[in-house]
Amino acid sequence: MSDGEGPGGPPLISVRTMDIVVALLMIAAAAVVIGDSLRLGMGWQENEGPRAGYFPFYVGVILAVSSAVNLVRAVLDRNGAGKTFTTKPALLQVLAVLIPLAIYVGAVAVIGIYVASIAYMALFMWHFGKYPLWRGFLVGFAVSAVFFLMFEIWFLVPLPKGPLDEPLVPVVSAFMKSIGL
């Protein structure tokens, strides 16, 4: 689809390199699959049909073979070396989303999803949208509040919570009940 023309700049990684890396990773995955299939038994059992490892084994083999073909093709492909997978600014742009996202997910596990979401949204809006921080926090708070009411109060689906939002649940629940919601 997109052929990697992000913000300008010198190519950093070529499509060829990336093709090789992905093919190698897939071969590794295939090895993991085949390894466990052998432990489970990949044969055809009399009267019972295939054993637990039968399908995964052949799936693993197909994965390995097709990835090997992709690998060879990528290695031989002179064209691909010229095509850009990503440029430095483009990669930085992607990492600027990906790294905060990882931090956000890590934070969800510790301080709960609602608080983490407020911070994440505020910082994202501030960094990428150049909004003042207070507006980011406001929007983040609104979004979090909606989800909080929906999940914790009405649907009774508990999402990960931390020390800050956990004590809120009974309080808000009682309040919503008292105003008839």
Partner: peptide, 26 residues
Amino acid sequence: FSIIAPTIMVICAIGAYTVNNAMFDV
């Protein structure tokens, strides 16, 4: 976009968690 994108991320995180109530899925 800078408002909608983080909201989508939050929705994705919530969605992933609620499938199985598992942080690992996120």
